[in-house]
Each structure stands twice: as structure tokens, then as C-alpha cells.
């Protein structure tokens, strides 16, 4: 159940947007499609919604083959990055739209709209026009509008992309809580790894039109399939031709088994951690250490240290460019 997309191909002219992409979104789950801009994730979302037709492949929604259905018949809620608010209607009419199309009786519409406005904390805004709302409020209205018709699936296309950082963080948390309450199968697209890690149960990393890796946030962070996923999902630095997390490196003032000598080029305090830039045999790398460690080792420009990955650190070989490996875990 939930959503199953199988072997989706989509081209725009010469440009391959999706190349044999298959994705599962479990019923009631909250999945993020994460990847760089232009990588195909929005296209996939729109194919699931029926706003684009795939060249080949199938889309199944709750057990029903939806590939040939128009968006009207798929019962998916869709939230756009720029809200797509009906500018000439007030908030009430916006949210009521789907119910009016379905010719529900007025009292029922009234009840449901007010219910939803409460849910998204827009009670009292019913008679405002979208132009009178802030970006965050407009997006909440868009969400209420999509939820009003009780869709089986909720799709969000970079829903917080047009908002400022503070509002983004608030809405992120809010979306997670909303999902915990409502449990509608949800899939959202984002290029912000922090957002994906914070909100989603599972993340599908899509780049270059292909699925690169699928897993929980922890799985992706701790066991990245390749160098692309590793560098996309968190900070990385290169040591001995391998990528490793800067906080997984340890420094010594004398040589030890497995260490390489390095010269400190810069020491910067970032919050309560310290970032140490190193020159390791001509290459640049950086290490994240605590303030204590920095003081203990007397780290400053020009000091020589010895560095190695800690025991059990995850490292990934740096592949040749343009070669994200396809890795599917169910």
C-alpha cells in the first residue's frame, strides 16, 4: 500500500530527468526526496501527482494503478513551493475549494474548514486574502486546503523553500507533529539535508535522475553508499583518498600507529567546537575537536600534529566524478 513508483523514465527533449527510478512510500510514512537542484526529485513528485506523464513506468497509489489517472482522480493533496494560492479568493474559500467541487453540503464544508483552520492555527484569518498573509501563513493555508478533501496521499514540493530560515525551522517541526497526529502518507521534496534528516522517517536520495540511496536518516549518515551521499548529508573532509567526517578524526601531538603528520594552518572557534584546518602532505583537510582538545594540544598556526580516523569511523573511497552508484535497500 502507500505509493509505489516503478521504473519511471521521463525526458524533456534531450534532458533525462528520471532514469528507471523506483521508489516506495509506505502507507502512513513520511518520506523525503532529497537531492541537488535539477536532480529529478520534483519531476518524480509531479509524476506521482499526475501533473507530469512518465514516458514509461507505473505509479500505484493504495493498491490502485494510477498511472493513467488525471490528477483530479488520484486524490492526492499537493502543496506547491510558491503556495499557488487562489489569489482572488479569501482563505476560507481557498480551503473550501476542494469540498465545493465535490458538492458537499454547506454546513459540512463550514465545519471542516474551521476544523482545518484551527489545525493550522489560522482561525480568525478566514476572511483575509492570500496577499494579506505572510509566506508562512500562506503555506499553512495551502496545507489546510490540500488536507480538506482527506487525500490518501500528501505531496509537498519544497514546501518551505520560499520562506526565511526561522520560519522554515518552525514549520519543519510543525509538519512533523502534524504528521504524527494525522498519519497521512506524506512525501516531500527538499534539497536541504538538514530538513530531510529532521523531518523524515526515510530519505530517498535522488541525483542525476537516479535513486542513489534509500534509508533512515541515521542509516544514510552512518552508512553512506558513496562519496556523493556522504558529502551531501553532512560535513566531510578528505584523508588518504578517502572521505571521512571531520568529527571522526583524532589529533595527537606525537606520531602514533596509523597517523599522518600534518601542519595546522588555521584554528577557528565555531560555537563550542573548534575547527582546525590542516595541511596533510600538500592536501587540505579539517578536523572538528572540542575546546579542551584544542587547548590541550596547544593548537595554533604552524603547529605540527598527527591525525588519523577514530576507531570504527565511516570512510568512503572518493570515486571518479559523475558516478553516483545506484543502491536500493528496501
Amino acid at each position: 500500500m502507500g505509493i509505489e513508483a516503478r521504473n519511471i523514465d521521463k525526458r524533456f527533449g534531450d534532458f533525462v530527468a528520471l532514469d528507471d527510478v523506483s521508489v516506495d512510500i509506505p502507507s502512513g510514512g513520511l518520506v523525503a526526496l532529497l537531492g541537488p537542484s535539477g536532480g529529478g526529485k520534483t519531476t518524480l513528485l509531479r509524476v506521482i501527482a499526475g501533473l507530469e506523464q512518465p514516458d514509461s513506468g507505473t505509479v500505484t497509489i493504495n493498491g490502485e494503478d494510477a498511472t493513467r489517472l488525471s490528477p483530479q482522480r488520484r486524490n492526492v493533496g499537493f502543496v506547491f513551493q510558491h503556495y499557488a494560492a487562489f489569489k482572488h479568493m479569501n482563505v476560507y474559500r481557498n480551503v473550501a475549494f476542494g469540498l465545493e467541487i465535490r458538492k458537499r453540503p454547506k454546513p459540512e464544508i463550514h465545519r471542516r474548514v474551521n476544523e482545518l483552520l484551527e489545525l493550522v492555527h489560522l482561525e480568525g484569518f478566514a476572511h483575509r486574502r492570500p496577499a494579506q498573509l505572510s509566506g508562512g501563513q500562506r503555506q499553512r493555508m495551502a496545507l489546510a486546503r490540500a488536507l480538506a478533501v482527506e487525500p490518501s496521499v500528501l505531496l509537498l514540493d519544497e514546501p518551505f523553500g520560499a520562506l526565511d530560515a526561522q520560519v522554515r525551522k518552525e514549520l519543519r517541526t510543525w509538519l512533523r507533529r502534524l504528521h504524527d497526529d494525522i498519519h497521512v502518507t506524506t512525501c516531500f521534496v527538499t534539497h536541504d539535508q538538514e530538513e530531510a534528516m529532521e523531518v523524515a522517517d526515510r530519505i530517498v536520495v535522488i541525483a542525476g535522475g537516479k535513486v542513489v540511496q534509500v534509508g533512515t536518516p541515521d542509516e544514510l549518515y552512518d552508512h553512506p553508499a558513496d562519496d556523493f551521499v556522504m558529502s551531501f548529508l553532512g560535513p566531510v573532509t578528505k584523508l588518504d583518498g578517502r572521505l571521512v567526517r571531520p568529527h571522526d578524526l583524532e589529533l595527537f601531538d606525537a606520531s602514533a600507529p596509523g597517523t599522518s603528520p600534518a601542519t595546522v594552518t588555521r584554528v577557528v572557534r565555531v560555537g563550542f567546537e573548534v575547527r582546525v584546518d590542516l595541511d596533510v602532505a600538500g592536501s587540505e583537510a579539517w578536523v572538528q575537536v572540542t575546546r579542551d582538545t584544542a587547548e590541550r594540544l596547544g593548537l595554533r598556526d604552524g603547529v605540527t600534529v598527527h591525525v588519523r580516523p577514530i576507531e570504527g569511523a565511516v570512510t568512503v573511497a572518493v570515486a571518479t566524478p559523475n558516478a553516483p552508484t545506484t543502491d536500493e535497500t528496501s
Binding site: 501533473l51 490528477p71 483530479q72 499537493f78 506547491f80 499557488a84 489569489k87 465535490r102 490540500a146 478533501v149
Partner: peptide, 16 residues
Amino acid sequence: EIGVEQEQAAWTLGAS
């Protein structure tokens, strides 16, 4: 200028 998104939103909400 008004773009096609409002219309697409209407489709996803079931409008013909």
C-alpha cells in the same frame, strides 16, 4: 503572468 500553478492546484483538488 498568473502562471499555471493555481490551475494545477485546482486539478489536484479535483476540479475538472
